[in-house]
């Protein structure tokens, strides 16, 4: 099974590092084939809002950096796992740049679905979005905004909803990473 894993390498928190290591370790011992992009702030440019991907290039971003690589392979995966620090109830800047940059995977056309507007899909399949936010001092209100946002993102990327986890401390890592693996239909590995 092909899985996309996105992590923020600019974030130097102990919690973030341990969470990433824990997940990579579990994935390494399972049958999951993960394509891991660890992104630093200098590696990725922001979306320019130019819409070239929609009107000129058939879904390819005109900026040739890691953001384009991620966008180009996004729909080849069964799952997309996003690990992000929670900042003001949103993602970190780096992860937000990535999400903005995978917009080319939709068509610009607007359709109505369950009485709401959404974009027409460019491809037949999209990965199930799994979002793991982390932060020791994330408030309850921020956690709620984060979860609601991740679910809205999944709808924008052609899924019914996202699976969202919030990790506030190292003691939660084993439980959360185990649940993520289980979600992908993999056996939980006893550590």
């Amino acid at each position: 099974m092909q899985v996309l894993l996105l992590t923020d390498e600019s974030d130097e928190s102990e919690l973030g590092k341990s969470l990433k290591e824990g997940l990579l370790d579990l994935i390494g011992r399972s049958k999951v084939e993960a394509r891991h992009f660890g992104i630093r702030s200098g590696d990725i440019r922001n979306c320019l809002g130019c819409f070239s991907c929609w009107i000129k290039t058939n879904g390819k971003c005109i900026i040739g950096d890691v953001g384009k690589q991620i966008s180009d392979c996004y729909t080849e995966n069964e799952f997309a796992i996003v690990l992000s620090p929670v900042k003001f109830g949103c993602y970190s800047t780096v992860i937000k740049h990535v999400l903005d940059r995978i917009t080319p995977n939709n068509l610009p056309f607007l359709i109505r679905y369950r009485n709401r507007t959404r974009h027409k899909a460019r491809y037949d399949q999209y990965p199930q979005l799994v979002v793991v936010g982390y932060g020791g001092d994330t408030s309850e209100a921020e956690a709620q905004t984060f979860a609601a946002l991740a679910k809205a993102n999944a709808v924008n990327f052609q899924k019914e909803s996202a699976k969202v986890y919030l990790c506030r401390g190292k003691d939660e890592i084993i439980n959360i990473t185990g649940q993520v693996l289980k979600l992908m239909g993999m056996e939980e590995v006893t550590v």
């Binding site: 979306c47 809002g49 900042k87 949103c90 999400l99």
Partner: peptide, 17 residues
């Protein structure tokens, strides 16, 4: 600012931080 993926664009978040 515009709404990008149901939230502020990356450059807004960067600025706020």
């Amino acid at each position: 600012f515009p709404l990008y993926q149901d939230s502020p664009p990356g450059i807004m978040l960067d600025f706020l931080g």
